[in-house]
């Protein structure tokens, strides 16, 4: 499999490390339901047949964390974005939502 690193270009998957589901977000530790939320964050995962968003780390390359959109049925990768950009968007939208 080849992953198109937005910084380095297309590389073999031997350069990357896989972490897992990018749709889960680290919860607020001060929230009243933090215990349940962290349990779900650490352990609960959907088993999707289709496109998923995953965190990959360009460990042998530029050390960027990436959000890779991959179809689990075909391994086809339709999108790769820097994780930091998505995380910043997430934070910005959270802070602008009333």
């Amino acid at each position: 499999m080849r992953i198109n690193c937005p910084f380095c270009g297309e590389r073999g998957n031997d350069e990357f490390s896989y972490l897992g589901d990018a749709s889960v977000v680290r919860p607020d530790a001060s929230a009243p339901d933090a215990a349940d939320a962290f349990y779900a964050f650490a352990y609960e995962r959907r088993n999707v047949a289709g496109p998923t968003q995953e965190l990959w780390y360009h460990s042998a390359g530029c050390h960027a964390w990436l959000v890779v959109t991959r179809d689990t049925r075909t391994h086809e990768i339709s999108d790769v974005k820097p994780a930091q950009d998505i995380a910043l968007e997430r934070q910005n939208s959270a802070s602008t939502t009333p």
């Binding site: 965190l55 780390y57 960027a64 964390w65 994780a83 930091q84």
Partner: peptide
Amino acid sequence: QHLELCRQWHWP
């Protein structure tokens, strides 16, 4: 790798 995840993903 863990610190980079914290830096780039948890607290960008």
